[in-house]
Nucleic acid binder design. Structure first.
Lengths: 270, 270
DNA sequence: CGATAAATTCCAAATAATGGAACTACGTTT
DNA sequence: AAACGTAGTTCCATTATTTGGAATTTATCG
């Protein structure tokens, strides 16, 4: 059994395998989702802390429910029902709906790719994306989770958290150096958040991927229980430091327009 | 408790609320997903056959797991974790990956929107879409479920089912007349499937939406345990009956190319 | 402010999940 | 071809989780 102490904060971010049946089922889904290649029963068993019989039954249930699919070669992949759920989750997400026209406007103004991401634990989940030529696959990015500490959207969102929350999360993160400029300590991250609060923008200066530059600005609900961010991103060869600096205020303004719209449209009784 | 007889086929398609804890949880998700507007606790309670206490705890668990989110006004919406799962489900779906280049080629050849959908019970779920101008929102369609009996992709997929399966499903469907030409009886649907089998193409002649025309062709695994279809769709004002007829063979050929690719790449040990 | 409805908490009873072991299917080696 | 090993599946008494009615707290409206 998974050692899980009294004070189980079990905050999301890592694979939280709670005591409940649903939680266990989700842990199994996570295992399948995070596998490099569709795992076989034994592969999942090795990763999981559950006995054979139990795991097997859980998998069967997930397959029956359409959350997993069992391929002919006995490997498991995520099921189509998840797509159905996600499609509705996305289409009906009020925040996304409200932000959408602003994202389009921001794209018009800058000509570069615009992202909308929300913070979930130590990660940002991309909720929307507006780009010009559809060079990359559509659906790409949306739903993707990236580390918050080394992306423009992520750092902007973190900066909007209350101090204690920020500190707690900064300590929770397991830092990994992606490039020379990646932030790799809680202290540096908290400092960076202070800078972002001061100027209103987060910058990603090739901290996650070399060759990618980005300006972002935070968005939050009035009580900060919900934080998100928008960004403009582009390849370094096309987007100079100067362009980035120029866009900073437009991005900030777009962010506050979105917040204003949220305040109005998500007020008491909408 | 939900009356659910001995012979509970409980085939998917309608909201299958099984006995298991996970099944119940998914039923709750379905209720939220199918609500017109984010439901409050009481709204869900009214739809659900569960007692207050039980339902409330289930909702709490789903919120904790990130499958639902509880908005400030006490309404529930689908959670972001579903987006994360779906994003991986989509990106890693082998069938979709294999089909993708063929869909692109088909779009090049026709200039109209190409869809890829798989059959799930009485519905088709759109797995991919290739279109020219990104007039409509990206993400649109993908993950959407539509009735199989009145869409090109759906009818094509149904035609690929073994006879007994087709018959069983034809009887399960609850038909609804969308337009003048909508098929509304099991018999008519089975006849239509026979026609599709004979010529290799399904046509949607404004059966679901007026003003929309479509040619489709079925795709299936060798054992037909998995059936899908592709289609070319366009507005009637731009796409004549004649264009549709012209594209029929290209669509069929694309479908068989995809099947061939599947046979090769999804063979015993890939 | 008081009244009413909605949301949340509680805990003994009911039920579903557990997990070790036994069994089957399949592919590999001698 | 038989024996072996590995991967997958089934079984059922035990155990832990879910259940659900009622009581409590919190929000909403006149």
């Amino acid at each position: 059994m998974r050692a899980l102490k009294e004070n189980e904060v079990a905050s999301l971010g890592d694979q939280a395998s709670r005591s409940g049946t649903v939680g266990k089922a989700m842990s199994v889904l996570d295992l399948v989702a995070n596998a490099r290649t569709p795992p076989r029963f034994t592969d999942i068993l090795a990763q999981s802390d559950q006995p054979r019989g139990t795991l097997h039954r859980q998998l069967s249930i997930l397959v029956d429910e359409g959350l997993l699919s069992l391929n002919r070669d006995h490997t498991y992949s995520l099921g189509l029902r998840l797509l159905m759920f996600a499609s509705k989750a996305w289409a009906e997400n009020q925040f996304r709906v409200i932000a959408e026209p602003h994202l389009r406007a921001l794209h018009e103004a800058t000509g570069e790719t615009v992202h909308l991401g929300v913070l979930r634990g130590t990660e940002v989940i991309y909720l929307d994306k507006v780009e010009g030529r559809q060079a990359v696959r559509m659906y790409s990015q949306i739903g993707n989770a990236s580390p918050a500490y080394c992306t423009g959207v992520g750092k902007a969102a973190l900066s909007a958290l209350p101090d204690e929350e920020l500190e707690r999360i900064a300590k929770t993160i397991r830092y990994r150096r992606f490039t020379d400029t990646t932030i790799v300590t809680p202290e540096a991250l908290i400092e960076e958040a202070a800078r972002i609060r001061a100027c209103g923008n987060a910058f990603d200066r090739e901290e996650h991927e070399p060759g990618i530059r980005c300006v972002a600005a935070p968005i939050h609900s009035t009580d900060r229980s919900f934080v998100a961010a928008i960004s403009v991103t582009g390849p370094a060869y096309r987007v100079s430091e100067h362009s980035i600096a120029t866009w900073a205020s437009i991005v900030r303004n777009t962010a506050s327009d979105i917040m204003e719209d949220m305040r109005v449209r998500l007020s008491p009784r909408s």
